[in-house]
Design a protein around this nucleic acid. Structure first.
Lengths: 221, 221
DNA sequence: TAGATTGTTAATCGATTAACAATC
DNA sequence: TAGATTGTTAATCGATTAACAATC
């Protein structure tokens, strides 16, 4: 309960810290200061120390942080220590297959235990070691095998109903690649990945750059 | 210059508004209020009006916003009106291919004009209508054909050097799928997509949910 | 010990929201 | 006109940063 007051934005930075600590560990670095870690991540040292302070004391004055220890502790805080995260995936089109094939998920302990689709062509097949079932069987599956995490890779038109089914089935964290706004009840976490929106917002700055450049070249404009 | 003072977080919401307005247009909706739009996007009406106010006045009191008009104006602000955004893609592995095949990019006007890789197996091939060149030729290509946007889908170990090359070649907006911190100079925009980090931060809340549940079931814990 | 760096508090900064006059 | 909703200002809220005593 007390930890539920940690700002969401802090929680979202913890994996960033943990990831960098993993790299540092691989580099053979035993200790690191908030200053150096912040430099590597383009984050202020004060922010790192403040973020960590929500969870306890992890460093040594004059020395910094034990790289391996802090990484372990962050992973424990995130609930990633020594456990496999089971996920279902809905939507086995091109994108869904790329997700199933992506090695980064299992490498970090996230395993797709079952996939679902509505296309008879793929139902019944096994793709990247994952069995594909009829999406109509999704509610039944979730009842028999509760899962907390889901990845949604269906077309936008299908996403809302899929998310509803997942939520009804007890899934409380969903990563959606569908480019459509989707409401979820309190207590359910939905993250959306939309590369097109990222590009569109960057386009603004590209255009600004062009305008400035034009202004320099043609001061009268 | 004056517009460069618009907060980045506002710029990042504009594509969200534009996207929803596109859906509303498709639904045949002619006018919408900030209240209704906010409801659909889970954003407060005040925030929408405030965001828009950075760019001018777009609505009518008592009526709301003309859906098509506002969408057009937002697209113009973002620099998306009637122009194709040319991009290069670096890294034609599984993920790179999925990006090349993804219809959402061209549908929104973002076209990969050339891809690059270091693997002799793919260099010279044409994938999804895009020619794949040797990444060693990337600097030369950018010199001949300046491009503002790039997508990076190489392994983490290669990402830093690729980003450096892109920046040196004049690219000022990069969308990277590589899970590694990468510094870029001022004026260059780098966005990273890391689904694993999203899952990791959601894992925190899954665990919190479990802890709460345990606490309810076993009040003594 | 001297130097470095933490953890934490208070100050600052910036973003969100509430409120309301203007007006369609 | 009455009702609705904008655009904008001021108030609130929350996150970041600076500063520093504590201490390794």
């Amino acid at each position: 309960m007390s930890e539920s007051t940690v700002p969401n934005i802090v929680i979202r930075r913890l994996p960033l810290y943990a990831r960098e600590l993993g790299l540092l560990e691989a580099e053979g670095c035993a200790y690191i200061s908030s200053k150096e870690l912040g430099h590597r991540l383009d984050v202020t040292p004060a922010q790192i120390r403040k973020d960590l302070s929500y969870f306890g004391r992890f460093g040594r004055q004059g020395r910094g942080y034990d790289v391996g220890d802090l990484r372990q502790r962050l992973r424990r805080i995130l609930g990633l220590d020594g456990r496999v995260q089971r996920m279902v995936l809905v939507g086995v089109g091109q994108l869904g297959r790329a997700v199933l094939d992506y090695a980064g998920f299992p490498m970090q302990g996230f395993h797709v235990v079952r996939a679902f689709d509505s296309d008879p062509e793929v139902i019944g097949r096994v793709i990247a070691d994952v069995q594909v079932d009829d999406v109509a069987d999704l509610p039944g599956y979730l009842e028999r095998q509760p899962v907390a995490l889901a990845i949604v890779t269906v077309p936008a038109a299908a996403a809302r109903s899929v998310v509803e089914t997942l939520v009804a089935g007890g899934v409380n964290a969903i990563l959606s690649y569908a480019p459509i706004a989707t409401a979820v009840p309190d207590g359910v976490h939905l993250r959306q990945i939309d590369p097109v929106m990222e590009l569109q917002s960057m386009a603004y700055y590209i255009r600004q750059g062009e305008l400035n450049h034009t202004a320099e070249v043609e001061p009268g404009g």
